[in-house]
């Protein structure tokens, strides 16, 4: 059975492409690295895309903005119009927001900023395990059947979803409208540090484009795709699973909480791949 081909877009300075390719393989997909200077026609060969994390163009001017102007992003926007899903992780999320693909209320219009982390008791770069959960009305390709809160790792300095669009803010007031939001281990909305690591509007960890096919997600699912990556001491059921698997000696190949999101790509296997 052929595996669905997923393009991993790389811009100068992104540095999580190898991990992302490995996780796509673990999720039953075939990852294909597409560099920023390759022909845009390469995109047509893929059924979906990931923009991985890192520091595209060294975050010059503003995280993600230089890459967002790339011709490759223009070509990606055309692929999105044809219905292909795109997952932006961390810097990839910042690129999607800067390119107007998220929230995508009007094609290419930039309606959201990824501001510097700023929450009560904490500012600046943060690398930590947090909990997130999906809003039940989000209708996003990547959160399909993702109901329970799950632990995942973040590492960013500019991850605070921020907008001056009052209508968008009003929409985010209802947590079930949010794609993915930071929460406590029990699943309650995070309102303060450390559960809310960056002060994001609506405690957002991820935001999708209008049709649900594009997701800008600040945490790193590829760093939580295997059970062995989960800390033993994190609160909740996943660390219990991890300790049990370690005792049983089969931890190396067991899936972690971040895999489910990547596995959504395998649902595309029924779609004819070019």
């Amino acid at each position: 059975m052929s595996r669905v081909k997923i393009g991993v877009l790389q811009f100068p300075g992104l540095n999580c492409e190898d991990e992302t390719l490995r996780v796509l393989d673990f999720a039953g997909c075939e990852g294909k690295l597409i560099r920023w200077n390759e022909a845009a026609t390469e995109l047509a060969k893929c059924a979906g895309f990931v923009i991985p994390g890192g520091f595209s163009y060294q975050d010059r001017v503003r995280a993600g903005v230089i890459a967002s102007k790339s011709p490759l992003m223009e070509a990606l926007a055309r692929e999105v119009e044809s219905g292909k899903p795109v997952l932006g992780i961390c810097n990839g999320a910042q690129i999607l927001v800067e390119s107007g693909l998220v929230p995508g209320k009007e094609p290419g219009r930039v309606d959201v900023a990824m501001a510097r982390n700023k929450t009560v008791g904490r500012e600046g770069y943060i690398s930590a395990w947090v909990h997130v959960r999906a809003g039940s009305r989000a209708n996003c390709f990547f959160t399909h059947e993702l109901e329970e809160p799950f632990p995942i790792v973040i590492g960013h300095a500019e991850g605070r979803f921020h907008t001056r669009d009052e209508r968008l803010l009003a929409h985010l007031d209802e947590r079930e409208n949010r794609t993915l939001y930071y929460c406590t281990p029990d699943g309650d909305e995070a309102t303060e540090y450390p559960f809310l690591p960056n002060g994001s509007a609506g405690a957002l960890a991820g935001m999708h484009g209008l049709d649900g096919q594009v997701l800008a997600f600040m945490p790193h699912p590829e760093r939580a795709a295997w059970l062995w990556q989960v800390p033993e001491d994190i609160e909740g059921a996943w660390s219990v699973q991890r300790r049990a698997a370690a005792m049983a000696g089969d931890i190396a190949t067991r899936p972690g909480p971040g895999l489910a999101m990547i596995q959504q790509f395998s649902r595309l296997s029924k779609v004819e791949s070019v």
């Binding site: 001017v61 903005v65 967002s68 102007k69 223009e74 800067e98 107007g100 290419g108 219009r109 930039v110």
Partner: peptide, 8 residues
């Protein structure tokens, strides 16, 4: 920055 193709 207004759109993907204007402003930076």
């Amino acid at each position: 920055t207004r759109t993907r193709t204007s402003g930076m």
